[in-house]
Design a protein around this nucleic acid. Sequence first.
DNA 1: GCAGCAATTGAAGAAATCTTCAATTCGTGA
DNA 2: TCACGAATTGAAGATTTCTTCAATTGCTGC
Lengths: 118, 118
Amino acid sequence: MPVPLYQAKAEFFRMLGHPVRIRVLELLQDGPMPVRELLANIEVERSNLSQQLAVLRRSGIVTSAREADTVVYSLAGPDVAELLGAARRILTELIAGQQGLLDELRATQPVGAPTRGR
Amino acid sequence: MPVPLYQAKAEFFRMLGHPVRIRVLELLQDGPMPVRELLANIEVERSNLSQQLAVLRRSGIVTSAREADTVVYSLAGPDVAELLGAARRILTELIAGQQGLLDELRATQPVGAPTRGR
DNA sequence: GCAGCAATTGAAGAAATCTTCAATTCGTGA
DNA sequence: TCACGAATTGAAGATTTCTTCAATTGCTGC
């Protein structure tokens, strides 16, 4: 396994690590969408959206095309839905786990107090 | 859809956005592993690894347990492999796409030069 | 108790990312 | 050609994350 692969993977995930970028990818799952419409669906100012779109474009996960006076964005490939799905499953799992932990904490009323919960 | 979900998803991906953390997760896919062994497999100094393990622990994607004089880490759930797999597929796709683009660029010797490739 | 190894923690400076603003590009229609 | 709206860009300051160091905790064996 070549060494810099971990670097590429990490960069890829970092590219996904922003709420606006996530929303864009989710919106694009239903098909191509002009910037105007993205802007209407996401609470962010135009220039900030542009910055985030630029990040996505640079990574290659989306493509853009000009159509008359608007710019339309699309997903570059089909596997994005799968990725977001897997992420959602893990998140659900993690949140469920934390919920379980909370329940546990609520149920256990310590006397001597273990005082080591981190 | 509740609004702060995008926040949670973004944080999740940001948590994955570091080469050492990716390597740890990949190594843990084959089963629990003591820190000592992680350290032997990843080129990073002990205290930096600890910092990254702390990030993973805080997010809940791994758990740790002390066994005598060593600490053993495990994946908290089963879906991690799926996520990393999906990520690998997209990465492969993206790199292939960039390769295709490169080929295209090499093949097309512009005369008037479009000068707008970004 | 104390020495010794394993692992974690806290803190500080360095490096990367975010947000925001003004300036610019691109196309359309007057 | 000029003005206009849509979208992008570059740059600066603020915020966040990384790396590294010294100090600390936890366990084992003497």
